[in-house]
Amino acid sequence: MTRSPLRDFIVGCFVLAGLGAIAYLSISVGGLSYGGPGGLNLYATFDQTGGLKPRAPVVIAGVKVGQVTSITLDQNARARVDLDLDKSLKIPTDTSASIVTSGILGDRYISLQLGGESEYLKPGDEISFTESAVILERLIGKLIHNTDTAPAKTEGQ
């Protein structure tokens, strides 16, 4: 086997292109750079998460600033949602978190409305003001009950 500079160069280019594609998929698409150690970890509790999933984005004014790391049930049977935010952010203590939907049936994500306090939340703190997810089916159900209660009950059974 002999050296062939051109072939070696082309193979080198191929490997670089492949690694570049992996890096692009990992970092830019897969969001590898997000949520690394040292991020700002906060949590919030909700009555209803309504299909929020781990890795859902957390946005402030529509800009993605972090993601949901886990969703668990706490001892009061409420949903505890752990968030991982950009550590350079300053989140006032009276900030509120709400679960919203992109479009009517789109994915759930968490939107933060920053408050006006001069004190900021530290890693591990709770965002205490929360607004639970709106469940579309329940809304529709309420609507039907309020307008047409009696016939729905008798004919439905």
Binding site: V29, G30, G31, L32
Partner: peptide, 13 residues
């Protein structure tokens, strides 16, 4: 943004 929020490094990539 839809692409980036859906794709996870560890699970998908």
């Amino acid at each position: 943004s839809s692409l980036q929020s859906a794709v996870d490094f560890r699970d998908d990539v």
